[in-house]
Write a protein that binds this DNA or RNA. Structure first.
Lengths: 161, 161
DNA sequence: TATTGTTATACTCTATAACTATA
DNA sequence: TATAGTTATAGAGTATAACAATA
C-alpha cells in the first residue's frame, strides 16, 4: 500500500521533531527555544509581543520562554529606547555563535534534501511542494480541517461528558 | 528570495501542528493523545510498552497519557489475557467513532493536497517526496544533523553531574 | 534477571485571568 | 482605553529513577 502524500508529509514532520529533541537533549535548548532564537537571529532584537506573534503563542508563554533562555545565557532583556513598557530581547554573543553554526547546518541539510531529488524531477517537484504548501496554508487559514471533531460553535452540542 | 525545500517542509510541519492545536482546543484531545488513539485505531488494543515504542516515548509518559485518555473516556485498560503484568489499552466505542470520522477527514485532506499538484507534475513530485523522506530518514537514523550543537562527546563535558 | 506499569519528581510548553506600569 | 510584560494557576508532555508484581 502506497502511503499518501499527507502521510509522507506527516512522517517528515515527525522526523524533524524527534531529531531535534534528540539533538537538543542534554542541553538547555528545545524546539520552541530554538525557534525563538532563530527568529531573533533573523529579525534582530525584538519585543516579547513581536516574538509572541511570530511564534503564534501568548505573551505569557514568551515571558516564561525568555526567562529560560535568559537563565541559560542565550538572551538578555534590554530596555526599549522609545517605549518604556517594552523590552528588547537580544541574543548574547554565545547564542549568536550557536545560531550561526545552526544556520550552516541548516543550509547543509537543505542542500542534502534537495540533492536527494532526481535532477530530472526537480522542477516539477518544486512546483508541487509550492502548490501543496499554498493549498495547506489556505485550508488552515479557513479552518476547514476538523480532524473528526465537530467545530465548537456551529456543530451540535458535544459537551456532555 | 525563494525559500529552500527544507524551509517549505518546516513550514508545512508547523502548519500541521498549529492547525491541530486549533482544532483540538476546547476538547480533551491533543496531538499526542490523537497520535495514541490513531495507533490504537490502526493496531488494535496494545500494551503500554507497545504504545511507548510506537510513540517514541517512555513507559512513564504513556502511563500519564493513558490516564488522561481514560479520564476523558477515550480508552479503557483491560487485562492482558496471557501476561498478567501487562494491560491492553482499548478504544471505547465513542473514541472508535471519533477516529472513524478522523480517518474520513484525513483521507479528504490527503486527496485535497494531492489534487493541489498539477497532474503533469504529479509523478515527478511523488518520486521527489519519496526520495526526500528516504534521505531524511537515513540522516535522522545516523544522527548526522547537529543543528549547530556540538555532539555531547566533544566540547563541554557533560558527565560531571 | 528482565519486563510491565506504577509512584515520585522536575522541567517545559501552552493557555486564561488578573495585575502593574506605561502609552 | 489600550498595550507590554508580569504574577498566579492549571493542564499537558517529556524524562529519569526507584519500586512492585510478574515473567
Amino acid at each position: 500500500m502506497k502511503p499518501t502524500l499527507l502521510d509522507q508529509l506527516l512522517a517528515i514532520a515527525e522526523l524533524f521533531e524527534r531529531d531535534m529533541r534528540r539533538a537538543f537533549h542534554g542541553t538547555a535548548l528545545t524546539e520552541t527555544r530554538v525557534h525563538a532564537l532563530w527568529l531573533l537571529k533573523h529579525l534582530g532584537p525584538a519585543t516579547q509581543q513581536a516574538l509572541a506573534k511570530e511564534l503564534g503563542t501568548t505573551a505569557r508563554s514568551v515571558s516564561a520562554l525568555v526567562d529560560g533562555l535568559e537563565r541559560a545565557g542565550y538572551v538578555r532583556r534590554a530596555l526599549h529606547p522609545e517605549d518604556r513598557r517594552a523590552l528588547l530581547v537580544t541574543l548574547t554573543e554565545e547564542a549568536d555563535a550557536v545560531m550561526a553554526r545552526m544556520q550552516v547546518d541548516h543550509a547543509r541539510l537543505a542542500a542534502e534534501l534537495t540533492a536527494a531529488v532526481d535532477p530530472e524531477d526537480l522542477a516539477a517537484f518544486e512546483r508541487g511542494i509550492e502548490s501543496v504548501l499554498a493549498r495547506l496554508s489556505r485550508l488552515v487559514d479557513e479552518e476547514s480541517v476538523h480532524y473528526g471533531i465537530e467545530p465548537p460553535a456551529s456543530g451540535r452540542s458535544e459537551d456532555d461528558e
